[in-house]
Write a protein that binds this DNA or RNA. Structure first.
Lengths: 222, 222
DNA sequence: AAAATAATCTCATTATAAGAGATTAATAAA
DNA sequence: TTTATTAATCTCTTATAATGAGATTATTTT
């Protein structure tokens, strides 16, 4: 009542309706929690997402080849969200399970997507996240940032050192749908394992895997 | 329009509203899919569920000890749903990821819960799922079924051979909240590995783990 | 460039949700 | 066990918001 300003009978009906439809459930002590419908819907979402089906074998292959965490992160226009994640080790340096939001202004994933955005879509983001982008050393002026993103676009992968998780190196390449980024494939490795040669090798693999996923997804949804 | 009988402008608004709130997203070719909000909500649900937090170490311990799949299945009054699942092997005999509904009339999990239900809650289920219960050999008449459930209750675990997944043995014990079953802990092993001695050993572990989870959950939510 | 189709908007009507208050159930105190 | 207190649920009127017909604008297709 305090939070939403509705009266008792109204909230009673809301909660009853949400309970009856399974989106909310009541727990001990008159509390409420998200209900079974949420769990089922995410299951349906996972099962019906062609991107996850296509990408999973690649994530498995990459986590088998390197001690890393492999992620698929979807781009939803204004935010990015991990939708699939596999780790080689039980205690990975970086833990981004499905559903955990990722920052839009920092990290390899965000840059791998921004670098492939058309200028019109990109500029509002550069403005909005200017402080974040500056703080991680991408560039000070908008022109510097744009130049850095142009380099990412040319190379096809973005690399970030501890921008999202301290001590973790992220290597990400965009998954493109009709030329526009719809998601990103990212490999995260522990900073102490990382050296230039390893990063280059993983970068090449990530770029190629993202390319294959893009092509397969495009075939599927065409 | 065919499915729901609404007119075009109404469905346009529905879809727009669902898209704006992120529950639905549009995909290539004018199609729709479940959106980011669903994914985020399931993440919140996982993070805030004390049962999952408490049970996860037990699932990890059990999957490390035996080649099996360990599940936590929540009971929602009228249906049961897997909410947490860990497998020892990459290709487990039985695959029940989070969100996949489980049958209510068959299997160790269903029986482990039904056996601990008060008679008033139990009877409608026995009637509703009589055919299923009969088909898996629990009993023919309601009295036989009740007697079988009473045995489960005395022993504290339910064991089922290939009732849900052919070739899989399920061993389940209820997680009790204030004396009432709220979930079930289940270990699934491949039928060919199973022998009486192993099943007895796992049964004892499952019963004890479920007891510990119940006690810890009760302490948390009291 | 024109035609056809799909997407979005406007507005009057209708249906439905909101809140006030009453009633019933559940819990605590005597 | 009875009474007092609090919480949960229900009923009904009013006000609000959703609906669908049709118009308008955008997007493809020819």
């Amino acid at each position: 009542m305090n939070e939403l300003g509705y009266t008792r009978p109204t909230l009673y009906r809301y909660l009853k309706s949400l309970k009856d439809s399974g989106f909310v459930m009541s727990t001990r002590g008159g509390r409420f929690a998200l209900g079974p419908r949420v769990v089922e819907m995410d299951y349906l979402s996972r099962r019906s997402d062609p991107l996850i089906a296509i990408a999973t074998p690649h994530l498995e292959r990459l986590t088998a080849a390197y001690p890393c965490t492999a992620l698929i992160v979807r781009w939803y226009g204004d935010k990015i969200l991990c939708v699939a994640s596999i780790a080689s080790t039980v205690n990975p340096v970086s833990s981004y399970p499905r559903g955990r939001p990722m920052p839009m202004g920092r990290g390899a994933i965000a840059r791998s997507i921004m670098a492939f955005l058309p200028k019109q879509r990109l500029m509002p983001l550069v403005t909005r996240y200017a402080a974040d982008l500056r703080s991680v050393g991408v560039g000070d002026a908008p022109d510097d940032i744009l130049a850095a993103l142009k380099r990412v676009r040319r190379v096809g992968v973005a690399v970030a050192f501890g921008e999202v998780t301290p001590g973790a190196v992220g290597i990400a390449a965009p998954i493109l749908d009709a030329g526009y980024p719809s998601a990103s494939l990212c490999i995260t490795i522990a900073g102490q394992h990382a050296n230039g040669e390893l990063i280059d090798r993983i970068s090449a693999e990530v770029r190629e895997a993202a390319r294959q996923i893009s092509a397969a997804a495009e075939r599927e949804t065409a």
